[in-house]
Amino acid sequence: MTLQPIVPPEEWEAARQELLVQEKALMKERDALAAKRRRMPWMAVDKEYRFEGAAGGLSLLDLFEGRRQLIVYRAFYAPDVTTYPSTGGSYPERACDGCSFVADQVAHPAHLNARDTTLAFVSRAPQADIRGLQERMGWQLIPWYTVTDDFDTDFGVDQMHGTNAFIRDGDRIFRTYFVSDRGDEQMGNTWNYLDITALGRQEEWEDSPQGYPQTPPYLWWNYHDRYGATPISDGD
């Protein structure tokens, strides 16, 4: 490994400030891109889809858990998924390596829930195997359902993992965004999940269409076990 130039603190800080200009420009571009996502057209989901959960059958509407938005990640965990000798296991002990990596990065769902958004994983494994994997890997906080029909084919995730975003207006459901391949490697962080939704982070600084829900930043943030209690204010 070749070492980079070794410089005194003043030169190091100058280099950091130079790079910071580009980093801030990239952040602003990402904010602008998220604003365009919030203005994407919606696609009506008129077909009925059914899933199996721990308590039985559910519809796509049920997966929202009463919230306005739903993010669905299609994980590859099923009897016909290729084994992974490099990690020393196969089904049902192992899910797809990459999908497992994503699951390990998922933040506490209470933060998404506080923005009226639900996250769910789906795959074609039976519920008994899903529960065993969740217990072993510590993924109990991720709602995980079994696909029973053409949901994965219809939403572009039958051959590759991917994340679909939906919104509902009453009982009407709309698809608002989709990301797959390397785009999925950013998922897991609460902010990145919110940035792919139709409503975004729902904070006042965002460039969103007229009438979208927005509140001041910081003020809605809370400990994951305190949502619904007294909000945390600046300085707490």
Results as ranks from 00 to 15, higher is better:
residue 31 D to Q: 08
residue 164 N to L: 05
residue 175 R to Y: 04
residue 130 I to C: 00
residue 103 A to E: 03
residue 130 I to L: 06
residue 123 S to Y: 03
residue 58 L to C: 11
residue 225 D to C: 00
residue 79 P to A: 11
residue 21 V to R: 14
residue 161 H to I: 08
residue 116 D to G: 02
residue 124 R to G: 09
residue 186 Q to F: 10
residue 4 Q to E: 12
residue 82 T to S: 08
residue 103 A to Y: 04
residue 177 Y to R: 03
residue 227 Y to E: 02
residue 45 V to L: 08
residue 35 A to V: 13
residue 232 I to F: 11
residue 17 Q to K: 15
residue 130 I to D: 00
residue 123 S to F: 03
residue 118 T to D: 00
residue 174 F to Q: 02
residue 66 G to K: 12
residue 139 W to A: 13
residue 59 S to H: 02
residue 186 Q to V: 09
residue 74 R to V: 09
residue 132 G to T: 11
residue 203 E to M: 14
residue 10 E to Y: 05
residue 87 T to H: 05
residue 99 C to E: 04
residue 102 V to M: 12
residue 226 R to P: 01
residue 208 S to E: 02
residue 162 G to N: 01
residue 161 H to E: 15
residue 5 P to W: 11
residue 157 V to S: 02
residue 217 P to H: 11
residue 136 R to C: 14
residue 114 A to T: 05
residue 32 A to V: 07
residue 41 P to Y: 11
residue 115 R to A: 01
residue 48 E to Y: 03
residue 228 G to E: 02
residue 216 P to F: 12
residue 225 D to L: 00
residue 1 M to H: 10
residue 106 V to W: 05
residue 106 V to A: 01
residue 61 L to K: 08
residue 230 T to R: 14
residue 123 S to T: 07
residue 227 Y to P: 01
residue 81 V to L: 06
residue 175 R to G: 01
residue 12 W to D: 12
residue 117 T to Y: 01
residue 161 H to A: 15
residue 166 F to T: 00
residue 33 L to P: 02
residue 80 D to S: 13
residue 18 E to W: 12
residue 185 E to Q: 10
residue 221 W to G: 03
residue 72 V to G: 10
residue 170 G to Q: 03
residue 165 A to T: 13
residue 85 P to D: 12
residue 3 L to E: 07
residue 91 Y to A: 06
residue 181 D to T: 05
residue 93 E to H: 14
residue 154 D to G: 14
residue 143 P to K: 04
residue 173 I to P: 00
residue 223 Y to K: 02
residue 85 P to I: 09
residue 193 Y to V: 08
residue 210 Q to S: 15
residue 13 E to Q: 15
residue 234 D to M: 09
residue 44 A to H: 07
residue 193 Y to K: 00
residue 220 W to A: 04
residue 190 T to A: 11
residue 25 A to T: 13
residue 174 F to I: 07
residue 7 V to G: 01
residue 24 K to V: 14
residue 97 D to L: 14
residue 108 H to F: 02
residue 147 V to Y: 05
residue 235 G to V: 08
residue 145 Y to G: 00
residue 180 S to I: 00
